[in-house]
Design a protein around this nucleic acid. Structure first.
Lengths: 106, 106
DNA sequence: ACTTGTATATCGCACAACCGATATGTTTAA
DNA sequence: TTAAACATATCGGTTGTGCGATATACAAGT
C-alpha cells in the first residue's frame, strides 16, 4: 500500500463528468486527466473506458474533428451521472469545507 | 460495468478521514460507511484495511471501549491524509458547486 | 512516395479492493 | 457454565481498473 489512495475507480466517473460539459476526444481527455492527476493515463486506459461507456449508451460519438473522434454525453449518461454524483456526495458529504478552501480553477 | 462508478479505491481514504475526526472502532466504521454508501461493507473488507493502515503507521489502536478496539489517526496519518486530500481536490476540482447545493449532515 | 507525428484501438497482464465464509475471542444473559 | 450476541480477524477467490506494448489509421511535411 504505497499511498493511502491511488484514486482508482474514479476514471469512468470523471470522464462522464468531463464529457457532460464539452464534447471531447480521447486525447483531450487524456490531457485533462493528466493535468488533474499528475500523470497522463495511458491509451490502454482511456480508450477501453470510452468503448465501454459507449456500449453502455452513456456517451455517443459525434463526427466533429479531423482525425479526432469527439464524444458527447447521452440522455442515459446524464441520468447515470446524476445518480453517481448523488452517491459521490453521499460518501464525501463532509468534504465541503476542503473545497471551500480552494479557489475554482479556470 | 454495472454502474458508472462503484467508488472502489476510496475506502482507505474515507476511513482515514473518519478516524481523523473521532476515534472509531471497526464496527463503527462499518456502520458509518454503510450509511454513506448504502451498503454496509463486510468484515472482510474493513478489518484488513485497518490492519494495513496500522502497519503503515497511519492509525493507532487506543485501548478505549469494552469489547471494541478504537483506532485513532497518527501524525503520519495526518500527513498522508493531507496529501491525499490535495490530490482528491485536484481531481474533483470542479465539484464545488455540487457540494454547495447540499446542506451539511448532522 | 516516404517519413513523421498524431490519434485511435486492442491484447494480455498486474495489482488491489472488496466480498463471503469462517474462525476466534469476549461480554452479557440465563 | 452454557448459550447467545457481538466484535475482531483471516483466508481464498472474484472483479475490474489501469498499464505497457503493440498495431492500425490518417494527415501533413519533405
Amino acid at each position: 500500500m504505497g499511498n493511502c489512495c491511488d484514486m482508482r475507480g474514479f476514471l469512468t466517473f470523471t470522464v462522464l463528468r468531463l464529457v457532460s460539459k464539452n464534447s471531447m476526444s480521447g486525447e483531450e481527455l487524456r490531457q485533462e486527466l493528466g493535468r488533474r492527476k499528475g500523470s497522463k493515463p495511458s491509451p490502454g486506459t482511456v480508450y477501453p473506458v470510452l468503448k465501454a461507456m459507449s456500449a453502455n449508451g452513456w456517451i455517443r460519438e459525434v463526427g466533429h474533428g479531423i482525425r479526432e473522434k469527439k464524444y458527447r454525453i447521452t440522455a442515459a449518461g446524464k441520468k447515470e451521472l446524476k445518480s453517481a454524483t448523488k452517491k459521490f456526495i453521499s460518501i464525501f458529504c463532509d468534504m465541503k469545507d476542503e473545497f471551500d478552501k480552494v479557489s475554482a480553477r479556470s
